[in-house]
Design a protein around this nucleic acid. Structure first.
Lengths: 124, 124
DNA sequence: TTGTAATATTCGAATATTCATATATTATGG
DNA sequence: CCATAATATATGAATATTCGAATATTACAA
């Protein structure tokens, strides 16, 4: 694990927080979370939605599990994953607002982002 | 930069988001942001508050700058840093709530976290 | 049992991050 | 211009992360 190195000279609480953010800091893991915001999903379903190999998905899920971001519940041969805390959805929303401000000006990403935003609005 | 590797097979928007979270994913950077939530700070001030060497602080500030999390404004010989978007404070707050839920049970970190929480409350 | 579908783990090479030391840069006062 | 204080950057060794391939585990059905 990173950050466990001596000399860091910063409180354990910040180390803990950093580990949490680090758990989100990967494109595949972000995509997985965006799936789970909608509802629970099996590994298969995530795999299909993202178009990735099964081991990759399981690996990234295991990072999210290790950091208590998601929980896996066995259902027969399947494992159904959910967000451990629904506040993660809020976190992603605040992040989205920040990106939205930040990207004002850079066109391509902005269009994608606003598409996401419209989808969120119409879901309310 | 990470994540630019071929084969990632995930949209650029998620890569961008991941980079943002990665910018937060370090204990020193978290501490710096927690300082900046209160008000703008010079490098010196941050350095003093965290008890770290100057180059370390500048290095981490440069990561935050590169990811548009903070902005540095020259003021004579000093450089005053601020959050680029005040929503970062909200983001840290939501994160704090998540940690609070998550740590219910593990005592030491929880006490620290609740101390932070009380401080925030009384500042309102 | 044995087979099989679903998921998880292990391993290693490529790549990225971290942190400390040393060295630049920049702005200002004298 | 020169010295100096404040900040930034370069370098490199130690460490961590990533991803794909191979392998393991698990639960159920036949």
């Amino acid at each position: 694990m990173a950050f466990t190195r001596p000399g860091a000279q910063v409180g354990d609480l910040q180390t803990f927080k950093a580990a949490f953010f680090k758990a989100l800091a990967h494109p595949v893991r972000i995509r997985i979370l965006e799936e789970l915001v909608h509802s629970e999903r099996s590994v298969q379903e995530i795999q299909a939605a993202l178009g990735l190999e099964q081991p990759i998905v399981s690996q990234q899920l295991s990072v999210l599990r290790a950091n208590n971001v998601v929980v896996g519940r066995k259902a027969g041969v399947r494992v159904r994953y959910t967000l451990r805390d629904q506040l993660v959805a809020d976190l992603l929303d605040v992040a989205r607002q920040i990106f939205n401000n930040q990207l004002a000006g850079t066109r391509t990403l902005l269009r994608e982002l606003q598409k996401e935003h419209r989808q969120r609005q119409s879901r309310r």
